[in-house]
Amino acid sequence: MSLAAEPSAFELQSGATKKELKNLQTTNKNLENLAIDYSARIQVLEQSKDGLQSVLDGQALRIKSLLDTVGRQETKIQALQSSLDYQNETIKQQQATIENLQKSIGQNAALIEQIDSKLKDLAKLNEDILGISSAMDSGAKGGSGAPGLSSTSSETKPSPSKIDSPKKTDKQQASGKTNSADRSFKELSNKEILDEARKLYREKNLAESKKRYEWLVKNNYKAASSLYMIGEIEYQRSKFQEAIGYYKKSASLDDKASYMPILLWHTAWAFRYSKDMDNYNKFLDSLIRLYPESEQGKKAKDLRKSKTKG
């Protein structure tokens, strides 16, 4: 027993006992097991890492896809916003256009009312003018009105054949110059004859002026204004019934002429000088209603006011 317990020469030489060697072997074994365990754990971690990397890569791809989708949506939103801004601007412009149209409609409605009122006034004037003939017949003193003018109220614009040259005056019959005058007029243009008629009227040569205006009426050249001027000549010669007839015929040809206020004014006074106060007042009222801002319209208004006060 004592021999077995004694250490061998090898053990003595290495300096380690069997127990220590066994412990070393056990430790080495444990270390190997730990190394194997750590190696396994490292593999597991590496596998986990690879899995996590795959997950991360997948998430990165999803995030990129979402970002791309968000970018496209933002682009669409910007396009929609631009379209909305354009639509809003268009709506504003349409609203402004509608407001302008509404204003125009209001202005046009007012204008239409004015036109309707003017048409009513013109219709009344036409009635007044058409009633002149009957007033002439009732107020005439031994005369038949202007030569060549019909007294019917339904008469329309005359043709040249319906407007005959006025009858010769006594002076013309005595001189026998009518035919020679016609021949001399034929050598002139209508414009030249009109210029002569105006010049003679300014010079107070009413008879010669009248002959030229009668020629122009006969030839249907500026018939309305020529008839008006013949009326003015007869008015100045105190031939008021004849003047009224010519005024009536002139107005029936052109009731919008610039001289209409004077025509109505002189017509009114022609009736007054003929002692026809009803027609005198009627024409003053027509003048006030149709041409209130004209010089004659203002005079007529003053006359009516003074009569009312009186």
Rank of each mutant, 00 (worst) to 15 (best):
P7G: 04
A9N: 11
L12C: 09
S14K: 12
A16I: 14
A16F: 14
A16K: 12
K18C: 06
K19E: 11
L21I: 13
K22H: 09
N28T: 15
N33H: 05
Y38L: 14
S39Y: 08
A40P: 00
Q43L: 08
Q43M: 03
V44I: 07
V44Y: 06
L45A: 11
L45Y: 09
E46N: 11
S48Y: 08
G51C: 03
G58F: 02
G58N: 15
I63A: 14
S65V: 05
L66A: 08
L67D: 06
L67C: 04
G71M: 05
Q78Y: 03
L80P: 00
N88Q: 12
T90I: 05
I91F: 09
Q94T: 06
Q94C: 10
T97K: 14
E99H: 09
N100I: 05
K103C: 01
I105R: 09
Q107I: 07
A110C: 01
E113L: 06
Q114A: 07
I115T: 08
D116I: 04
D116S: 10
L119T: 12
D121M: 03
N126V: 04
G131I: 00
I132C: 15
I132K: 07
I132M: 15
S134C: 06
M136V: 14
M136R: 10
M136E: 12
K141Y: 09
G142Q: 07
P147I: 01
P147W: 06
T152S: 11
T152N: 09
T152Y: 03
E155D: 10
P160N: 02
D164T: 13
S165C: 05
K168M: 04
K177M: 11
A181W: 12
F185M: 07
K186M: 12
K186D: 11
L188Q: 15
S189K: 10
N190D: 14
E192W: 01
I193G: 01
A197M: 01
R198C: 00
R198G: 03
L200N: 11
L206C: 02
K211S: 11
K211I: 01
L216R: 04
V217G: 00
N219H: 13
N220Y: 07
K222E: 13
S226L: 05
M229N: 15
G231K: 05
E232D: 09
E234L: 07
E234P: 00
Y235P: 01
R237E: 15
S238I: 03
E242T: 14
E242V: 11
I244M: 12
A251I: 15
D254A: 13
K256D: 10
A257W: 02
A257C: 05
A257S: 09
A257M: 08
Y259T: 01
M260L: 14
I262L: 13
H266K: 14
A270G: 14
R272H: 13
Y273L: 06
S274V: 01
D276P: 04
D278G: 06
Y280A: 08
N281M: 11
K282T: 13
K282W: 00
K282N: 14
F283T: 09
L284G: 02
D285F: 04
D285M: 08
S286C: 04
S286W: 00
I288M: 15
I288V: 15
L290H: 01
Q296A: 05
K298R: 15
A300W: 02
K301L: 13
L303Q: 10
R304W: 00
R304D: 05
K305W: 05
S306T: 14
K307Y: 13
T308P: 00
G310D: 13
G310P: 00
